Amino acid sequence: MSPLTVTATGPLTTVQDVVGRPGRADLGVGVSGAADRAALRRANRLVGNDEAAAGLEVTFGGLGLRFEAGSAGGPTTAVVAVTGAPAPVRIGDRPGDLHRAVVVPAGAELRLGTPACGLRTYVAVRGGIAVEPVLGSRATDTVAGLGPPVLEAGVELAVGEAPVTPVPWVDVAPEAGLGDELTLGVVLGPRRDWFTDDAVATFLRTAWTVTEDANRVGFRLDGPELARTPERDGAELPSEGVIRGSVQVPPSGRPTVFLADHPVTGGYPVIGVVTDADTDRAGQLRPGASVRFRRVAVPVTSEEFRS
């Protein structure tokens, strides 16, 4: 497959996959991977890739990609799909489509504008982005510095061999709704007991605002202070493991929600954990957006019930 040349990156463009590096927290290595895994999966399915293929995660638009001509006898077109935050697409001098597979001729440039809503747009290329895996993943971990570097203009990216699976050529794939206000399911705990009942009620009824302090690690929220119980006020918590979706409350009393590049441990109490599926939606929240939390119960399997 012909290579791609990055001509522009916008605020941040990285290579990501949906799997990341699970099971390595004991080495200090986080999972990482796409902030909105569902959007990258859809993009890969649209071009006939395996869902685990690496693609590009584009924060707030601005990406430019030139599809270079291949060697003699090689392919002269590429098949791509753009999903996630709805950024305007142009392929050469014509508008492109979102949420469907499109053909890009060799020598043409694909450009993304600023998304109307949401934050992260995903670009999948048939064959996948063929960077060298690190610890089993092609994902860029912006904290640990693992995986390919953050992309810069002028970088060339190799594309893998086209899969045997045919391109589905659907008209338009369904896309999850995005907006400036989201409600995220949250399971309370493991440190819910560090907070007063009033604080927990405030946490669940408040429309929190995403602050400018937001990246792939997570985002801070602005709103009322969540008070600790009297016996926990001023107390310190030994560092313990945290996962994607953990809602940590520092001494300021205002929550921080962890995303894909979160640290593997944290020393502030976690009032709740966003459900795994909703962390994808959380990855689309931009500064200034509003977010609410809806309490959900921990699902109990039959095996857990018998034990």
Rank of each mutant, 00 (worst) to 15 (best):
P88S: 02
L63K: 01
R192Y: 00
T275E: 09
P263Y: 11
G234E: 11
A38H: 05
W208Y: 02
G96L: 09
R294D: 12
D93K: 04
A260T: 06
T7M: 11
L110D: 01
Q248A: 07
R220L: 09
V300S: 07
R292C: 14
E212H: 10
T77Q: 13
T256K: 03
G70N: 10
N49H: 05
G234P: 05
G33Q: 04
D141G: 00
P224M: 04
G23E: 14
R294G: 11
V131A: 14
T165P: 00
V58G: 09
A297E: 07
S239D: 09
V300L: 07
A144P: 00
R100I: 02
P269R: 02
S137R: 12
G189R: 00
E132A: 13
G61H: 03
V131R: 13
R90Y: 06
P163K: 05
S290W: 03
S239E: 11
V296L: 13
D213H: 06
L188W: 01
A8V: 01
R126M: 14
D233N: 00
V164A: 03
R90K: 07
S252W: 02
E68A: 10
A101D: 10
F219D: 06
Q16N: 08
M1P: 08
V242A: 02
A8Y: 01
R205E: 15
T301M: 00
E240Q: 11
F203W: 02
P115Q: 12
G245M: 14
A69Q: 11
G160T: 15
L226G: 04
P250R: 04
R192K: 10
D36E: 10
E51V: 07
R294C: 13
L4W: 13
E152P: 00
G177S: 07
S239C: 12
T279N: 04
A116I: 08
D17C: 08
V134G: 04
A173P: 13
A34C: 02
T279G: 01
G154V: 10
P269T: 08
P105F: 03
A39V: 07
P224A: 01
R281K: 10
